[in-house]
């Protein structure tokens, strides 16, 4: 059995806490992913989407008090898959039609997250 790999997958990380975002980047890089960017806000995310390739996105639901939902809608419209990461209670910020998207509680378990990213990003 081969080790799980995200080889060739471009990941955008939207997370307001630098240390958390940086650790996530390090972890994903360890699984061969290419991290397009780590961004702390909706504006930075839009700028990154405009110039970088993004195959899958990891979205912190609550960005320092701002909901990530507008970005999620944008990604949905572009057909880019994404998963949510949340602290307790953040899922209330999500509208009904986004609640069936994959969601991971903080602190995130790396193996589960990677397995899910492989599943949705490398789906034939």
């Amino acid at each position: 059995m081969t080790a799980p790999s995200l080889r060739g997958v471009y990941v955008l990380i939207v997370e307001d806490n630098f240390v958390v975002a940086d650790a996530l980047r390090f972890m994903l890089t360890g699984f061969d992913a290419i991290v397009s960017a780590i961004v702390p806000s909706l504006a930075h995310a839009s700028a990154a989407l405009a110039v970088d390739r993004v195959d899958v996105a990891i979205l912190d639901i609550n960005l320092n008090g701002t909901s990530v939902v507008p970005l999620a809608e944008d990604l949905r419209a572009r057909g880019i898959p994404f998963v949510f990461v949340s602290g307790y209670g953040d899922e209330d910020l999500l509208p009904e039609h986004l609640r069936d998207r994959p969601r991971f509680d903080k602190p995130v378990e790396a193996e589960r997250l990677v397995a899910r990213l492989i599943e949705i990003a490398l789906r034939p």
Binding site: N17, V19, V20, A23, G87, D105, K106, P107, V108
Partner: peptide, 15 residues
């Protein structure tokens, strides 16, 4: 509080 604790734990894990 729970939200803060989860975020803090995430930070601790990242650190």
């Amino acid at each position: 509080l729970d939200h803060r604790v989860k975020n803090t734990l995430a930070t601790v894990q990242a650190v």
